[in-house]
């Protein structure tokens, strides 16, 4: 069976030099109905991988397939046609910067449909309202501008915008790291529901291993542009094999009290 999203041997170089590789032969598979956690810190290449999968960063080698169909080679009008299917959606890290400050929330959420040319403006508005409800937002927010709503709400608006076009694969870049616990839980619950009800393949990118516990089915750990560890979430979290993963887990602060001084000795 082919997974909803398959990427293998992905290489992205800095400029045109093969010597400086941001990603060096990275593979990532996300089956429908599963959440794959992609863990990595600043400079690990996690955002670049998501951008490469979404087609925002050029691949120097490797392939990306959606439902078994190669998409990484598409160019020009063909690429636009594929994108208009909305099958792969990317939710940016910073919701404030990824929403046009001059468009109302409803206009932003309906943008994908407008680009695709679905229905009339009124139908798109209805669809936008449905998408806002899906992520647990009051549809009355639709008439506000991004500057007039809270950070947690903006994050959900960008999620609604991606969901409005009915994706198969959802890539989320640090969707919860800037949120307080209540907002984080809300977003994670929405993702959990989407996975079950809509059979979405979700790639959840974060530097914070902790936020993946209880949500992710599988975890892939990225370090300096390479996958250093990969496996079922509980296995990676409870019995990490790679020293880097071990250090990541030891660094996560616990509400139950001070963490043993660990990070200092390993730097």
């Amino acid at each position: 069976m082919t997974a909803a999203l398959e990427a293998d041997g992905v290489e992205v170089w800095l400029g045109r030099r093969a010597t400086s590789r941001i990603l060096d032969g990275v593979g990532l598979t996300a089956p429908a109905g599963q959440i794959v956690g992609l863990i990595g810190e600043t400079g690990s290449g996690k955002t670049t991988l998501a951008r490469a999968i979404a087609g925002l960063a050029p691949l120097h080698a490797g392939a990306v397939r959606v439902d078994g169909v190669p998409v990484s080679g598409l160019r020009g009008a063909e690429l636009r046609r594929f994108r208009r299917t909305g099958r792969v959606q990317y939710v940016f890290q910073d919701p404030l910067r990824s929403l046009d400050p001059d468009l109302t929330v409803a206009e932003s959420v309906a943008e994908g449909l407008a680009v695709r040319g679905d229905g009339r403006a009124a139908d798109r508005r209805t669809a936008a309202v449905a998408a806002l409800r899906l992520v647990g937002l009051d549809p009355a927010l639709g008439d506000r501008l991004p500057g007039q709503i809270s950070g947690g709400q903006r994050q959900r608006v960008t999620l609604a915008r991606a969901l409005a076009v009915g994706p198969r694969v959802l890539l989320l870049d640090e969707p919860v790291s800037a949120l307080d616990a209540a907002n984080r839980n809300h977003v994670l619950r929405v993702l959990d529901r989407l996975r079950r009800e809509r059979e979405l393949a979700i790639v959840l990118i974060t530097h914070d291993l902790g936020s993946l516990a209880g949500v992710a089915d599988r975890i892939v750990v990225l370090h300096h542009g390479r996958v250093v560890e990969e496996g079922p979430a509980t296995q990676v979290l409870l019995a990490p094999e790679h020293p880097y993963t071990q250090r990541l887990i030891a660094s996560v602060p616990s509400i139950d009290g001070p963490r043993p001084i660990y990070a200092r000795s390993t730097t």
């Binding site: 979404a54 087609g55 925002l56 690429l79 636009r80 046609r81 594929f82 994108r83 208009r84 909305g86 792969v88 959606q89 990317y90 940016f92 910073d94 910067r97 990824s98 929403l99 046009d100 001059d102 468009l103 932003s108 943008e111 994908g112 680009v115 695709r116 960008t158 915008r161 076009v165």
Partner: peptide, 22 residues
């Protein structure tokens, strides 16, 4: 490089549409 322009690109928007709306 604005992210909302990238978001529109990912929806398959043409350059003309991006100039017009964003």
């Amino acid at each position: 490089q604005a992210q909302y322009v990238e978001a529109a690109t990912l929806f398959g928007a043409t350059r003309w549409r991006i100039v017009r709306t964003h």
